[in-house]
């Protein structure tokens, strides 16, 4: 699904230049669920943004679903993003003047889907994330967890091949994080490829493979046994109850 070879990325600020990614080789097969870890500033977001075609690498090759991603103009990049990728951001990035339903329907608008069909599909995905009854609410009327679930529904709406999530639980408390992870696991169970960035160990262990970034290189890449978020959620709930007693 994803093939990366010798990927390099530097940021230039005036005369200074910062080599963030120093030759990354990486591949992901369809249906995988990968977490990318590393200390702050190690280049996780940069890497994910390049994978998401939100940013461009300086050198190296990147193939997504067999298509070379190189020197794409904005038009093609937008098309690929719309067809292949779904994004989930730490800060949700919902459009604040649009209802939950309209937010979810947005990718479909850019796919050229007609309004009626769009709304139907959007509602379907809102149901999937358990927010059907919140469809007409604006983002600022929703909790963080709900917002992230709307964002997940939006990412799913265009039926992408790969979901990219940059710290999807970064702004959520533990309980809500697990709920969101449960949802993401379910999506992966249905066969969708998922890459997520996190610096929380417990979240990383809910994926099937952990990639560790350090100083612009992958220092570790290993498969792990997936911890089911539903189990972790219940454990957490119990421990909270005991500590409250």
């Amino acid at each position: 699904m994803i093939e990366i070879k010798d990927l390099n990325k530097s940021y230039h600020m005036g005369s200074n230049s910062l080599h963030v990614l120093k030759g990354i080789d990486f591949s992901v097969k369809e249906g995988e669920m990968v977490s990318i870890m590393g200390s702050s500033g190690s280049g996780k977001s940069t890497f994910l943004n390049i994978l998401g075609m939100l940013d461009e690498a300086d050198s190296g090759s990147y193939t997504l679903d067999g298509k070379p991603i190189k020197n794409l103009n904005e038009k093609v990049a937008a098309k690929y993003r719309n067809q292949f990728l779904g994004f989930i951001f730490q800060s949700f990035n919902l459009i604040n003047y649009k209802s939950a339903l309209d937010n979810v329907a947005m990718p479909l608008y850019y796919q050229g889907v007609k309004r009626a069909e769009r709304m139907e599909k959007a509602l379907h995905y809102l149901e999937k994330v358990g927010l059907a009854q919140w469809a007409t609410h604006l983002p600022n009327e929703l909790s963080g967890g709900q917002k992230q679930r709307v964002a997940i529904a939006r990412a799913l709406a265009s039926d992408p091949k790969v979901l990219l999530a940059d710290e999807p639980t970064g702004a959520l408390d533990t309980q809500t994080s697990y709920e969101v992870m449960e949802l993401i696991q379910n999506i992966n169970d249905e066969g969708k490829t998922i890459l997520l960035v996190t610096h929380e160990d417990d979240i990383a262990h809910m994926t099937k493979r952990i990639v560790n970034l350090k100083d612009g290189l992958i220092i570790d890449d290993s498969n792990v046994t997936q911890v089911r978020a539903s189990v972790a959620k219940n454990k957490h709930l119990q421990s909270k109850q005991t500590s409250n007693v």
Binding site: A78, K79, N82, M106, S158
Partner: peptide
């Protein structure tokens, strides 16, 4: 600007 970024991330073309 931010809204435009979001729209582009989910597939809006510059012309649109």
């Amino acid at each position: 600007t931010k809204e435009i970024g979001i729209r582009k991330a989910i597939g809006a073309q510059p012309l649109s």
